[in-house]
């Protein structure tokens, strides 16, 4: 039996999800006792954080070292009215206003080889909302080493991808052993990004994190790839690479040199 009893206010707040057999009271208690950390409070993070908070995830960590710029607001809607503020602080402000049940921990910094494992260690799930390859590889490797589930997503223009990595599943490096050579993939500034794409994929990341907490089916050993211009959604089966340096257990520590340029680990 659960040791949290929902208050009358919580029964009202979560009524629409308490009704569903997949959630109910037991699921809601699981959510309230869970801890998720969102790395990057940009376009993806903006969407993911709002729905994690709405669902009543008990603790949300928010990691971002940047501050809100006017060019962000086309997609990073969580930062309304907060120009110049640190993004993690700004997103935390939204969460506290939306749902006082949620405890927020702010990390006004970017993840790196030295801090990432300590930052993610206390959480049940990590949501990768970063915008660059070194951070994605770093989060993948740190999560595999710490045995913490990770929800990865990345978007550009109208396209995006999402996959969930759990201990023993295929990891991000199994699919992409290395980053494309610098300059071969246009950045968000060069190629552009549809605000809706970050919204859709960020909300899908929150969906995956919530399902993971509830013990429901997730995108494990699967990647969803979608082109929002044609509205073609492809669910791709992916396989664990037995020779993957990280999830095979060969590499046990994060090394600075593994997160530059191609991020390849030999």
């Amino acid at each position: 039996m659960s040791d949290i009893i929902l208050t009358q206010e919580q029964i009202k707040r979560y009524a629409r999800q308490l009704i569903m057999p997949e959630i109910g009271g037991k699921g809601q208690v699981k959510l309230l006792k869970s801890k998720a950390i969102v790395v990057g409070a940009g376009g993806l993070g903006s969407a993911a954080i709002q729905y994690l908070a709405g669902a009543g995830v008990g603790k949300i960590g928010i990691v971002d070292g940047d501050s809100v710029d006017i060019t962000n607001l086309q997609r990073q809607t969580i930062h309304a009215g907060n120009l110049g503020m640190n993004k993690a602080e700004s997103a935390a402000k939204f969460v506290k206003t939306l749902n006082p049940d949620v405890e927020v921990e702010v990390y006004p910094e970017n993840v790196n080889v030295n801090n990432v494992r300590d930052i993610i260690r206390e959480y049940d799930v990590v949501v990768d909302c970063t915008d660059n390859f070194p951070s994605r590889f770093l989060l993948n490797d740190a999560c595999v080493m710490e045995k913490i589930p990770l929800v990865h997503s990345a978007v550009l223009r109208f396209i995006g991808e999402i996959m969930t990595i759990v201990p023993d599943s295929a990891c991000y490096r199994c699919v992409f052993p290395e980053a494309p050579p610098p300059g071969s993939v246009p950045s968000c500034q060069e190629a552009g990004i549809a605000g809706v794409a970050t919204g859709i994929f960020g909300v899908m990341q929150a969906t995956e994190a919530i399902k993971l907490i509830l013990g429901l089916e997730i995108l494990e050993n699967k990647m969803l790839y979608a082109d929002l211009l044609t509205m073609e959604f492809d669910l791709i089966d992916i396989r664990k690479d037995r020779n993957c340096p990280v999830c095979s257990g060969k590499v046990k520590d994060l090394q600075e040199e593994s997160y530059v340029e191609t991020c390849r680990i030999e």
Binding site: M1, I11, K12, A15, R16, L18, I19, G24, G25, K26
Partner: peptide, 14 residues
Amino acid sequence: CPFTFIKTKLKLEE
């Protein structure tokens, strides 16, 4: 409604 159902359901979960 929907609290008639929700409160019954929460009781049954216990």
